[in-house]
Computed example of a mutant assay.
Amino acid sequence: MARDTQETRRRLLNAARDEFAEHGLEGARVDRIARTAGVNKERIYGHFGSKEQLFEAVLSAALTEAAEFKPGAGLTDPASYAAATFDFHRSNPQLIRLMMWESLQRQRLSPEAAGRRARFYIEEAQRLAGPDMDSEDARFILYGILALATWAHALPVASSMVFGGTPDSQDLRERIEKAVTALTASR
């Protein structure tokens, strides 16, 4: 009976996404990933080479999914884009956690991954800003939108301190839209 390598790879990526989101690269355990995926841990090394390469594959897959499936992917209105980004991360908290672990524990990207991400953000910024805005200003506006739309999901304790308790999600979403409208009014 031939092994279904694609199914094994899919199960490993899913199990690893949960493990890395919860424990980070350094705290994740290959044994737990293999057990959750229902495979021998040597399959991890056979498919990915190392735990670090598995982490990169998980993060790459999560970022690709976000770029492809985020409801705001085709939006050109910055406020609507911010609301869609807020909604996406509220429904998909693992991506922010993975990116935070990456920043805390890796602090480096392969040149290919860095290039892909930079191109994605440059294109997003230009699409949102329009053709008349300077590229640097466009990227700064995108950065502000992403910060506003993700802060509450990335740092819920800090957010509750700022708001004096857990903010109402719908109210926060609406306030973010208004803030982004003000931020981009002069564009």
Score class of each variant (00 low, 15 high):
D87F: 00
Q53S: 07
A73T: 14
G49Y: 09
G72E: 10
T36Q: 02
L12K: 09
A21N: 02
H89R: 02
I96D: 07
A152R: 14
Q105P: 03
A118M: 13
S135R: 11
E22Q: 04
I33T: 02
Q6Y: 08
H89M: 05
G115N: 11
I122K: 12
I33M: 00
L95E: 12
F69D: 12
V157M: 03
S91A: 15
S50K: 04
E22R: 06
Y143G: 14
S80N: 15
L75K: 09
F163Q: 08
F86V: 10
Q94E: 13
M1S: 07
S60R: 11
N14H: 06
R11G: 05
A147P: 05
L95N: 12
V58I: 05
A79H: 11
D77E: 15
T85G: 08
R175H: 12
Q53I: 00
R35I: 01
A67H: 13
G27M: 06
R11Q: 11
L63E: 12
S160H: 10
V162L: 15
V180W: 14
L25D: 01
E7A: 12
R9H: 06
L95P: 14
T166N: 04
T184M: 03
I44W: 01
L59W: 00
A154P: 05
L75Y: 08
A82C: 15
D87T: 10
L109M: 12
A21E: 01
A147W: 14
G144K: 13
A154I: 04
S135F: 00
S135V: 07
E7I: 03
F120D: 09
R119P: 01
H153S: 15
G49V: 07
L155E: 14
A113E: 14
L63A: 05
S91P: 00
